[in-house]
Design a protein around this nucleic acid. Sequence first.
RNA 1: GCCCCGUUAGUCUAGCGGUCAGGACACGGCCCUCUCAAGGCUGGGACAGGAGUUCAAUUCUCCUACGGGGCACCA
Length: 543
Amino acid sequence: MAIPVPHQPVRVRIAPSPTGDPHVGTAYIGLFNAAFARHHGGQFVLRIEDTDQKRSTRSSEEAIYKSLRWIGLNWDEGPDVGGPYGPYRQSERSAIYLRHAQLLLDNGSAYRCFCTAERMEKVRILQRARKENPGYDGHCRGLPRDEADSRAAAGEPHVYRLKMPKDGETVVPDALRGQVAFDNSQIDDQVLLKSDGLPTYHMANVVDDHLMHITHVIRAEEWINSTPKHLHLYAAFGWEPPVFVHMPLLRNADKSKISKRKNPTSLEFYQRSGILPEAMLNFLALMGYSRKDAEGNDLEHFDFDALVSDLDLSRISLGGPVFDLEKLKWINGIYLRAMAPALVAERVFAWYREEERHAVVGHLVQERVTDLGNFAHHAAPFYAGSLEYGLNARYLLVGATSKKKTAVRLTAAASAAMLEDLIARLEALSSWQLAEVEACARAAAQASGAALGDALMAIRVAVCGRPASPPLFESIHAIGRAVTLVRLRLAAAAVSEPRTLLEAVNHAQAEVDAARRALEAAQAADGPVAAPAAAPPLADKEA
RNA sequence: GCCCCGUUAGUCUAGCGGUCAGGACACGGCCCUCUCAAGGCUGGGACAGGAGUUCAAUUCUCCUACGGGGCACCA
């Protein structure tokens, strides 16, 4: 069963929301959209869904472009490249949505709702108490049109809601799942236009997809439940809906929807970790999808063009794939080893130079360097993704390594809490400026109750992996938001679950013990001339 | 709580009524080797459970369990 292609040319889109770090999920969905478009000789559109004024930022939007380009995705139309159906930024399309909302008001498929947030809250509480489904209760649904209009004209704040049918069912044709039925009774009257005049996702998405002639909506499974609303919107406008393809959700190791708490989700993190974009793309293509060669052997290593050549979305498997960093690393290694040697060096140096950051790192490291060859050692924390703490893990416990008798020594839980606090503060930053980063670190340190230096030491080791680094605030600033946050989360998790840290330390201790035994044995047997009977080998399996 | 989706080894997957249930990552062993990788060989490890349909179910249907998602003036 292939995906139906009712219309030529095929047009697909991704519609990321510029509200945070560029997400692997965006790249994942983008990859299959782009490949589908290319396979059918159609177009791939990038649309920015920035109707959430509170959270959307232009810098996040820029970061999305950058990361998607980094991974090798190119769109035919988008805010930055233009196209015949623009503008491609929803915040610039307000008039279009307003006009279309008016259309729905006029043909009776939408109505004005004057309910306040406070009333909605009360309704929800009541519904919960009565164990009813939460949802809009239809309070304003029966309001006469002229009354609603005059209240609106008087300036009373209100939203537009879609008038959903109250009974019967809505069947969503999903290209991968078949017919999925929903009872209309549990779909409430969705807000289409917010009181700020901007559309909700549901409204904007349907209007834009139609106006942009989107033929296939390939999106994450989390949207499948709202598809009935979208279907009714299409019907209300008298438009033909696109083909829907709901992709499985990328998962954390515990199978929950992939999240930054449990996984690095920022594409920038992977870029900074030294993951090759082509390897990342390849890895993503393996999530829920598989290819075979002519003999029927599974293919693991292939590029975008190969994916495009025989793409068949109906081969998508619907169990949510766990995003497994181990396999990513393996694929990355494959690409590295397959490269011409000269090219590897070129890629490595190009990577070191990315974003002109090397100048800043050079400056930070300069004072500590004794020779050129020494540079890499000191700069290492700036050129890596996640870190291993090994013996340095002890520094993650705030105050534990302090030499002062009076030092405040935090428990593991309190140390983790301090890191969590810092994470929250850093996440709340709207931009990554040195002064702000410093303020966050100082505030978290102070809030912990420990001495400034002790708390900062824990942060230093969490972020840099070592108790010796260039000035901490500058280092954090240079390491960057994406990598810093991942390291802090990992460190916080490690500290609150010290078992693995202890294992690492025990392992290291075993090495030390083995080394000492070997050397002591050598010394004992030592005459003026080295004894021919060699010291016991430094067994790396030692306990 | 209600609704929707899903379920092959720790992980990614092949399979689309009859297979010794195949491959990959990870893990163990052996080989190669100055080390470490890489590579080669090899080992252990899976159809969530129960009914039904059928000569025959991993594959079709239903129930249960488990996992996930959704139920916003966020997308």
